[in-house]
Design a protein around this nucleic acid. Structure first.
Length: 286
DNA sequence: AAACCAACCAACCGCGTTCTC
DNA sequence: TGAGAACGCGGTTGGTTGGTT
């Protein structure tokens, strides 16, 4: 199929978005809704291509966006989901409320990927370091960073046309490691002493069981970052479990967010279909 | 103080998929 | 039904920042 460039670059702004552009985009979408990005940018009077508008909205301006300060729990979840899904960032992001695929992708490429690589090579050398992922985690940044709420009006005064600096500050301070409520056990992880096939099998199961539901679209206006903190030590029943695996599997989830052991056995078959012999990476999630 | 380096991340790009006419 | 448009995704790039020498 013939394909023309997404947009003519003539006369269009490129590069960092300015506060003014953000305001225009936000107010236009609040009034008219999102979608139809091509004509949206024209009608809003933005000299940006539709793709650029969409990206800006989805990654920064959309209500509920949580930026920076990726918690240890989220980190663990990303690692598990990546192990399960591969580089399907949008799927991974869909299970991390307030996180965007771009942010997760960036975080993986710059931090987590290296960390995982390092841990995996280390674990070969030192089997005792099996659970060491928790010991070398990125510390939460102490400095607040720009959030979606800033884009909605709490922006610090800036020259009208100056680019918005959305960059998160690099974290250099090291804080003490705090014991997280979401222990491996609470997430259904294999114990550190599990070995061999049992561990692998248990982990595969744990990944499936620990998957949170897809992020539910936040309907409220810009919310404080704290309101979106992800507590992985949740009860599925409390959250109102929206099954990524459709109803059949959701029915097998107990209030503690786990499957009964006999239900777990049939999980992979449900995911992969009868006689499915592919791996979970090939599973059609939606 | 300046130069250099590495880390970070916003934005761009190209391609596949889905939608619309 | 097919062509074109729109959308969505993942990979990559380039600018900025903070740390080190």
């Amino acid at each position: 199929m013939g394909r023309k460039p997404c947009c003519s670059k003539e006369g269009l702004n490129r590069g960092p978005w300015t506060a003014t552009e953000d305001d225009i985009l936000v107010s236009y979408i609040q009034e008219h809704g999102e979608g139809k990005w091509g004509c949206l940018s024209r009608r809003a009077g933005l000299k940006r291509c539709g793709k650029s508008c969409r990206l800006r909205w989805l990654n920064y301006l959309r209500p509920g966006i949580k930026r920076g300060n990726i918690s240890e729990d989220e980190e663990e979840l990303i690692i598990r989901l990546h192990r399960l899904l591969g580089n399907r960032w949008s799927l991974i992001a869909g299970r991390l409320p307030g996180r965007t695929d771009n942010e997760i992708k960036n975080y993986w490429n710059t931090t987590l990927g290296k960390k995982v690589l390092k841990n995996s090579s280390r674990s070969k050398d030192d089997s005792e370091a099996a659970g060491a992922g928790a010991s070398s985690r990125r510390r939460p940044c102490s400095e607040p960073i720009r959030t979606a709420s800033d884009a909605a009006g709490r922006r610090s005064p800036e020259p009208e046309a100056s680019p918005v600096r959305t960059k998160a500050l690099r974290c250099v301070t090291r804080l003490p490691v705090v014991q997280q409520p979401a222990t491996p056990a609470s997430l259904g992880c294999p114990s550190e002493t599990a070995t061999g096939d049992d561990a692998a099998r248990a982990e595969q199961t744990a990944i499936k069981v620990a998957l949170p539901p897809p992020a539910v679209e936040v309907k409220q206006d810009f919310v404080a970052e704290d309101d979106l903190s992800l507590d992985l030590d949740f009860h599925m029943g409390e959250l109102g479990f929206l099954s990524p695996w459709r109803g059949e599997i959701a029915n097998g989830v107990g209030l503690d967010g786990r499957f009964a052991s006999d239900e777990v056995d049939g999980l992979e078959e449900l995911l992969l279909g009868p006689g499915g012999d592919g791996d979970l990476d090939e599973f059609a999630w939606f």
